[in-house]
Write a protein that binds this DNA or RNA. Structure first.
Lengths: 204, 204
DNA sequence: AGAAAAACTATACTCACGGTATAGTTTTTA
DNA sequence: TAAAAACTATACCGTGAGTATAGTTTTTCT
């Protein structure tokens, strides 16, 4: 695929993602997407087999970008400190800061958006949502496992559930920030999660 | 409105809610709702002005039921203990138990479902979503304020954000439990929130 | 430079859905 | 038992989603 095609494809996806996060997947018409992408219907179907294929492409792109983003933050955290607990806390602080920098509220999470329309999608989309969620769990729990090698938790804790809690807080925080139109709701949730980690493993 | 009409209205709403939580609002057609409600299109429009009116009715019913549910749990918690912190912890334990009793995953939260389709709705629906979310905050933060009168938090804490965190954990927990098809994910998130409260205010 | 492949445009068609309207029928209530 | 409430049955319209196909421009490769 050449540069031009790739650019067009990206443009279509960016447009579609914005609209979908506001109107839902079923509520977003292909007509609307192509109008705002300055392309014709034929052009759209050159790039995507149909709406489900678009969903698949969007989801893949979203999860890949998310993966890069989280790994970057973890990378910076590991540069800054050697202690696994401090790494986790630095990571969470950086995450909270990044979320606070969004001047408007977070645009939304595609996985969450699709969850409440799951019956619209083929199995491959559903599977990718599941895989993406599990990869978040994997990423966070890896670090938490390192923490547990060195620190004793104040309560007996399932690492996977604790890793999932960060996803929960973010998904919930995004929803709250959108409903309440308060851009800082999300970063405050991350900070609370961070405080929980501090209390659970720290010796303060 | 007589009993029969009320029953029919409730039947339509229950059917609609189930479908909407699976397919999204835009993805749910009135035709499908009336088929599964054993009613005709005329009958539907006798009860609801249109689709937005249905959304409004669903949301109101959902929020009212939620309010009753939470207040019941708080009531029981206050019967069982006098200490505000213990009341909060008992409440959260009862909440976690109730969520664990769902043999399948939680059917879903209408507010969250509508959030990712918010541009589909009239202002009255959006306003009701906001009011509902704020009433949850109100309910939880009231109890947390009582806790703070007696106990010192380990970190400086904004009560409203901490109250919102329970909503976040539940919204996020519902999403996770649906994606991962693991019914117990939600109750585990509530338990983690409870542990956070224990660590934050308890003297253990 | 020119052919082949890629990246599109233009157009048209079908079907489902939301919403409306109207006339008639059954059930409940006063 | 009459009026009001709660429906059924049917038909219609405009919009738009999704699909298909044939033709045209642009890029790429040799």
């Amino acid at each position: 695929m050449g540069d031009k095609a790739s650019n067009t494809r990206q443009r279509i996806m960016s447009t579609a993602e914005k609209i979908i996060l506001q109107k839902g997947f079923a509520g977003t018409s292909i007509d609307e997407v192509i109008q705002h992408s300055h392309i014709t219907k034929g052009g759209f179907f050159y790039h995507f087999k149909g709406k489900n294929d678009l969903a698949l492409g969007l989801l893949k792109r979203y999860l890949d970008a998310d993966d890069v983003f989280f790994n970057e933050l973890f990378g910076r955290a590991r540069e800054l400190t050697e202690d696994p607990l401090q790494q986790m806390l630095v990571f969470l602080k950086l995450l909270a800061e990044a979320m606070a920098e969004l001047k408007v509220h977070h645009p939304g999470c595609l996985v969450a958006a699709f969850t409440y329309e799951s019956q619209q999608f083929d199995d491959d989309v559903i599977q990718m949502m599941k895989d993406g969620t599990l990869s978040w769990r994997q990423l966070f729990s890896e670090q938490l496992r390192l923490v547990e090698e060195k620190y004793q938790p104040r309560f007996e804790t399932d690492i996977n559930d604790l890793a999932d809690m960060l996803s929960s807080c973010m998904e919930g925080g995004i929803i709250l920030s959108r409903i309440l139109k308060s851009p800082d709701a999300l970063s405050k949730q991350v900070i609370h999660y961070r405080n929980y980690i501090r209390l659970l493993y720290g010796n303060e």
